[in-house]
């Protein structure tokens, strides 16, 4: 029981460290956009914040679209096999 709790604590510690480093790398990558000249072909992609915001929005959109398609295409796992066995 003790070891399990220890494990849990250790895990949470690890998750915390991961988040910290992740946030640091986010900040660093975002900030470095302002120090590097990005060669864009279309204007907006030369903005220092463009890739960060665009990546964020694109993923949000992908999750929302796929989530909203869920009810339309998701079926129980036995969908095909029950049909094939039934007939």
């Amino acid at each position: 029981m003790v070891t399990k709790n220890n494990d849990k604590n250790k895990n949470q510690q690890l998750i915390k460290t991961c988040w910290t480093w992740f946030i640091i790398s986010l900040v660093v990558s975002f900030a470095s956009g302002f120090f590097v000249h990005l060669h864009g072909e279309f204007g907006i992609d030369e903005q220092p914040w463009f890739n960060a915001i665009y990546g964020f929005i694109a993923c949000l959109a992908i999750i929302i679209v796929s989530k909203s398609l869920g009810p339309l295409v998701k079926r129980p796992e036995k969908y095909y096999s029950s049909d094939e066995e039934g007939k």
């Binding site: 992740f22 956009g33 590097v36 890739n51 990546g55 964020f56 694109a58 949000l60 999750i63």
Partner: peptide, 22 residues
């Protein structure tokens, strides 16, 4: 190039942020 690296890191890391926030 510095520009490629920065834009790719930004794109990917912020995509990752969306995932982990969710």
């Amino acid at each position: 190039t510095a520009a490629h690296l920065v834009s790719q890191f930004q794109l990917l890391l912020f995509a990752g942020l969306v995932f982990f926030l969710f």
